[in-house]
Amino acid sequence: MLQENKRIKSAKYVSNFETIFACPICNSSMKVIEFKSLICSNHHTFDFAKQGYMNLTTHSVNTKYDKALFEARRKLIIEGAFYKPLSHAIAKIINEHVVKTKEIISILDAGCGEGSHLTNICDIVRSDFFKDVVGVGIDISKEGIKVASKHYSNKIWAVADLANTSFKNKQFDVILNILSPSNYDEFNRLLKPDGLVIKIVPQSSYLKELREHLFHKPEKQNYSNLETVERFNESFQFVESSRLSYTMNLNKPSLECLVQMTPLTWSTTEEQVTSFFIRIQLKSLLIWIY
């Protein structure tokens, strides 16, 4: 009964914003029917899962990102406050460039994972800047969206393909792209004319201590995202960029969550991981705003 109520509650919330959706199969308009399904005018049907999310993909996708990874990431973000300075920096940028001219702000987190970044940022915008926010999180990983819908209500959570999102043109005031892949053609299609794309790009010192401990080759220890930044700059009109750098000391539980959530450890041995020291330094996390 509790699971059914969660499905219905989510469907009722989504019904308030059903006009933003476009069918991923035929691109027609969609409506929430009987608080059970999102159905387009050509009768393509996408049911709400018992956890409250929707699967809007048209084909199955397998990823290495499992439930344990997303639960570890959520714990590190929420309980460990690992990205707290980043969330506040993003919320401040939204306030400076978007909030002042809007009563209600629509935010899409493209590649939202388990939804903690989006939730934190929406909460800060509401509490610090007193604005209503509609938060929409999409990710190709069903496990990530399951965790998001389990822990965070009053958001729209959907499994979706970043190259074929299920939304109409020009629907979002803000698109977040936090340490995740991008599709700039789709971002341009979805962004309102006065909208803002915020992309978070890690610099070479991001998780430096972890990289240096796990890898011996210089190209693994140090890397450059210059090409990523250049591609991004080609797609959007430049507004502002800023650099955020901070250091955190992690206790053992938080360190275990960090190791579990990062793909950096996928190609390493258990011995390498368990021997890693407890102090992690997070440095030079570059925020690019366009």
Rank of each mutant, 00 (worst) to 15 (best):
M1I: 09
Q3A: 08
E4W: 07
E4G: 08
I8C: 03
I8A: 10
Y13K: 07
S15K: 09
I20V: 02
P24W: 06
I25H: 11
I25K: 14
I25C: 07
N27L: 14
M30E: 12
I39E: 15
N42P: 11
H43F: 14
T45A: 15
T45C: 13
T45L: 15
T45Y: 12
D47H: 14
F48T: 15
K50S: 10
G52M: 04
G52K: 00
N55E: 07
T58S: 04
H59L: 07
H59A: 06
V61N: 07
N62V: 12
D66N: 15
A68I: 08
L69S: 05
L69T: 06
R74L: 07
A81N: 15
K84P: 01
K84R: 06
P85C: 00
P85V: 05
A89I: 02
I90D: 00
A91L: 11
V98R: 01
V98G: 02
V98W: 04
T101Y: 14
T101V: 12
K102F: 02
K102I: 10
K102V: 01
S106N: 13
S106G: 11
D109S: 01
C112D: 05
S116F: 12
L118I: 01
N120I: 05
I121W: 05
D123N: 09
I124C: 11
I124H: 06
V125N: 08
V125S: 07
R126V: 13
S127A: 06
S127W: 00
F129G: 15
G135W: 01
G135Y: 04
V136Y: 03
V136P: 09
K142V: 09
G144M: 02
I145D: 04
A148K: 04
A148H: 05
H151I: 12
S153G: 14
N154C: 14
N154T: 09
W157D: 01
A160K: 00
L162C: 02
A163F: 11
A163L: 11
N164S: 10
T165A: 02
K168M: 06
K168H: 15
F172L: 01
N177M: 00
N183V: 05
Y184S: 03
E186Y: 14
L190T: 05
L190I: 06
L191Y: 05
L191C: 09
G195C: 04
G195F: 12
G195N: 08
V197P: 13
V197E: 01
V197G: 02
K208C: 06
E209T: 05
L214R: 08
F215V: 02
H216G: 11
P218K: 14
E219H: 02
K220M: 12
Q221E: 00
Y223P: 01
S224V: 03
S224L: 00
S224G: 06
L226I: 08
V229T: 10
V229Y: 04
E230A: 15
E230F: 07
E240C: 14
R243L: 11
S245I: 09
Y246P: 00
Y246T: 05
N249P: 10
N251K: 09
N251I: 07
P253G: 15
E256M: 09
C257W: 12
C257E: 13
M261G: 04
T262E: 13
T265L: 02
T265Q: 04
S275M: 13
I278V: 15
R279P: 13
K283S: 02
K283I: 03
L286D: 11
I287G: 07
Y290G: 15
